[in-house]
Write a protein that binds this DNA or RNA. Structure first.
Lengths: 175, 175
DNA sequence: TCATGAAATTTCATACTTGAAATATCTCTA
DNA sequence: TAGAGATATTTCAAGTATGAAATTTCATGA
């Protein structure tokens, strides 16, 4: 589309004359590839080192921040996955003795899930390795670059912020 | 860990005194949340508007860039998913008449997959909407921010660049 | 040429994921 | 306080995803 007869060679950076729409698309594709690559690497390492899957690790990471536990819905919102999904992961983690369900006192619809002592120990070990891996994978980023990236990603640049609950939780949990 | 007795209130940005390791972890989590949110939004819109899934859309997008087709392995590498995964998605797309398999002339182990005319038409429609959605979702990012982000994401900041094949292909396909 | 190892694909078991439907419980209002 | 609507969870069918094993074909050196 928009068949440009001839393209003037770009002087500095490539694609400087591209419409913003194409630029944003390019950014999204780059973002997606980057996070997929990192995710794949972390999944592989978790599997080899701890026989652990990424979804289960994510759930344990969420629970670790909340000794009192979280409800299924809180987990689902925080991890941005469907509620039915959480059920299955918790089932498997519970079968391994990593987490346990506890009925919610005030609301009989809800269930609290929390790490067992065994789960907490296991997570502590994995978290240490995980942080080191991330540090290694993102190793070539300098302090300034990291700060810039985080700041950019934090800009309210997304029309669709479907995780308002998330924001609340993060605000509450920030230490 | 590193129990800091009391935290001096940060003057400018938060977490400025954090070790680089924690910073990188934070960046990764932010990156992951961002791309998950965008992915969820795009998935939902594709589903509602075109009854299309994201994985199938991704495959069609890859094939659209290569009229001559791609082998299963090329697809698998480009999309960063397992080879067995591609088989299933292609099976379903082929059943819908969106793509077709063609035997590789020189290598009887390989198979070429390409968009059918119907698939190409369908993808053209979806791609237009998809680009508009991305443009909308990333709408609050200005030109400069986008360029900065792309540049940062392009920095060879990742030790684990498992997709060397990808790089080749992208280099070849850049227009 | 023949054996051996590498590469492309499919198949398989298992796990993850979604969206929708089904249940159970809660909340709030008429 | 009954009952309508909202919320929390589970269940379900279908699709997605992985890693390993099995098959087929290729490539290469003895």
């Amino acid at each position: 589309m928009t068949a440009q007869p001839q393209r003037r060679p770009n002087l500095k950076l490539g694609a400087k004359t591209e419409p913003a729409s194409k630029q944003r698309l390019r950014l999204w594709l780059r973002l997606l590839r980057t996070s997929r690559a990192i995710e794949a690497e972390l999944r592989e390492r978790l599997r080899v080192a701890f026989d652990m899957t990424l979804p289960k690790f994510d759930v344990m990471a969420a629970l670790q921040r909340r000794p009192a536990g979280m409800t299924m819905t809180e987990l689902s919102r925080f991890l941005m996955v469907s509620n039915g999904n959480v059920t299955g992961i918790i089932d498997r983690l519970a079968a391994e003795g990593m987490v346990a369900r506890r009925p919610h006192e005030e609301d009989r619809r809800a269930t609290f899930v929390h790490l067992t002592p065994k789960g907490a120990r296991q997570f502590a070990t994995m978290a240490k390795a995980h942080e080191a891996w991330v540090n290694e994978i993102l190793g070539n980023f300098g302090d300034q670059e990291i700060r810039t990236m985080i700041a950019l990603l934090n800009t309210p640049g997304f029309k669709s912020n479907r995780s308002s609950a998330t924001t609340h939780q993060e605000a509450r949990d920030v230490r």
